[in-house]
């Protein structure tokens, strides 16, 4: 067991300097619910834990109707669902962050960490994709923005360079008459990893026709899976059982799950169909309530 150092920089610049010095051997600590276990078991080789929670930008959470929602990379899940305005504006995200682990996890674990951990089963990621979220990355050469659906590249791997860190996530303000939802199936009632997760968002026009929709899936591919063709199939359609079934079938066909301890390929594909349809129904209900 090799020694691990700990640093708690107070500025982004200080954090970036440590990343430059240690490269992949430095890891940013937010809630620690993945990192502390991975470092402890040796699943990830870490020389320096860089605590991001003292950097103000990483703990920043703000909603503005003009700019949308900004979630600092180390903001814990509970701050999202405990904020009545944010959970009302982004119910699909609130769905996801309120079922990640239990209360003791949600008080610490961050959405940014959930994304950087790059698990294909991460609950918050399909919801972020449904909301058109972008990841703001900062490194020695400055800032860059990446759509969340392009952030994860393989299980445990992301587009982050060794000298870069995730600063924040940005979710645009949903247009009027929009709704979103995240649904997950797990073998237990709680505290489990998704067998399948589905995040959707849809927007209605003034006549009640769907003007746009986005569908993203968890745990059915090596990375969180955005299925643009499933959402696009709904554009211009009435929100009917038939159009929802068609979109669900496209999502099902796009999924490429594996057999593992939580489920079989067949069961996962079945779940993609069922959950996509149900998530669309819930999002529709919310879009109609949003008015």
């Amino acid at each position: 067991m090799h020694a691990i150092q700990y640093a708690a920089p107070r500025t982004l610049q200080d954090a970036l300097e440590i990343l430059q010095e240690y490269g992949a051997k430095a890891r940013i600590l937010a809630g620690g619910t993945d990192l502390i276990v991975q470092a402890g078991t040796g699943a990830r080789s870490v020389d320096v834990i860089v605590d991001g929670k003292r950097i103000p930008e990483l703990m920043h959470l703000a909603f503005d109707p003009a700019d949308g929602l900004t979630i600092g990379a180390a903001v814990p899940c509970c701050r999202i669902y405990e904020d009545p305005q944010i959970s009302r504006r982004y119910p699909g995200l609130a769905d996801a962050v309120s079922i990640i682990g239990g209360m003791a996890i949600q008080g610490r674990a961050s959405v940014g960490g959930n994304l950087c951990n790059a698990s294909p089963a991460a609950d918050s990621v399909p919801a972020l994709i449904a909301y058109r979220a972008t990841a703001l990355i900062v490194g020695p050469k400055g800032e860059r923005e990446v759509p969340v659906e392009r952030f994860c590249t393989a299980p445990g791997r992301t587009v982050l360079g060794e000298d870069e860190l995730l600063l924040s996530l940005h979710l645009p303000t949903p247009p009027p008459r929009s709704g979103a939802a995240y649904l997950r199936f797990i073998p237990r009632n709680e505290m489990d990893i998704a067998e399948v997760g589905v995040g959707v968002s849809l927007t209605l026009d003034e006549q009640g026709t769907i003007s746009g929709a986005r569908i993203a899936l968890a745990a059915v591919a090596p990375t969180p899976l955005f299925v643009p063709e499933a959402g696009d199939s709904l554009a211009g359609s009435a929100p009917t059982e038939e159009s929802f079934r068609r979109a669900a079938q496209i999502a099902r066909d796009a999924s490429r799950p594996i057999n593992d301890i939580r489920g079989t390929i067949e069961h996962r594909k079945h779940l993609v169909g069922v959950l996509t349809r149900r998530a669309l129904e819930r999002a529709l209900e919310r879009a109609r309530q949003a008015g």
Binding site: A8, L29, G32, T33, I49, D51, K53
Partner: peptide
């Protein structure tokens, strides 16, 4: 909080 997932220094 799960004390197994929090560092003492933190």
């Amino acid at each position: 909080v799960y004390s197994c997932m929090m560092l003492a220094v933190d």
